[in-house]
Amino acid sequence: MNQSGFAGYHPFINFVYFAAVLLFSMFFMHPFMQVIALVSASVYSILLRGRGAVRFQLALMLPLLLITAFINPAFNHAGVTILFYLKSGNPVTLESVLYGISSACMFVAVLLWFSCYNAVMTSDKFIYLFGKLIPAMSLILSMVLRLVPRYKDQIKQISYAQRSIGKDVTQGNWLQRARNGMTILSVMTTWALENAIETADSMKSRGYGLPGRTSYSLYRFDNRDKGFMALMLSLVTVVIIGGINGENSMRFFPSIKAAEMTAFSIAVYAAYLGLCMLPIIQHMMEAIKWRSITSRM
């Protein structure tokens, strides 16, 4: 269970945070905002997933970014600043190039945030949160998470058992293979239904179905969570106010127009930077504190 850094906070905080940064990076197209989101998401995902994340970003995200950036101007010809004409006679405009780059950045930032979300929001956190809303749902999710690996394992075992009598999907011609595959699925279904009866017994015998079922969780909303929540919400509020005042938006077509830099807009960008960097800052502060504690020991 990942309990260090930002992931150690209450699931509700994790969820609200990711909901906020995801929505913001989807809707705020201002270049500053985009750069902040992209850089923070990239740094955070590297922090969470290490070398794998670097490889992921270079091998998948970078090409994706370039392709999206190039595809847009090839199909979108709006905008007033014409750079040159394609062979088909369609113009390539500065606006569409920039819009392509901008939407590519947005797309990649969202994907990166999602990869961070996956690392932080483990299944039990998700179950816990939605269990609060729909209690039956949390149990179903938990059962599904129990059954999926179990069924996978069973399929493997059945397939091995069938292989040793020459009836696996890897044996025979394609027709036999298909038939064997169907047989394995049918064995699996029978097995699953048969064994589910016993699981139902186990649930009944432990009082499942009594009215007034509660949902237990290991999480507590402690003072640390409250502090973090307050900080996070105030930053979110500032960014939203900025958004309402149009500080975070950007117009691409027909001509480019970004919001002007004012003292207030700088404050909004700073708040957004703070928000996006929050897990990273938290992580670094923890590391520094840990070092100072161990040096004194």
Partner: peptide
Amino acid sequence: DNSMVTDKAWH
């Protein structure tokens, strides 16, 4: 295996 309902030991 059949009597277990949820995915985690604590649950």
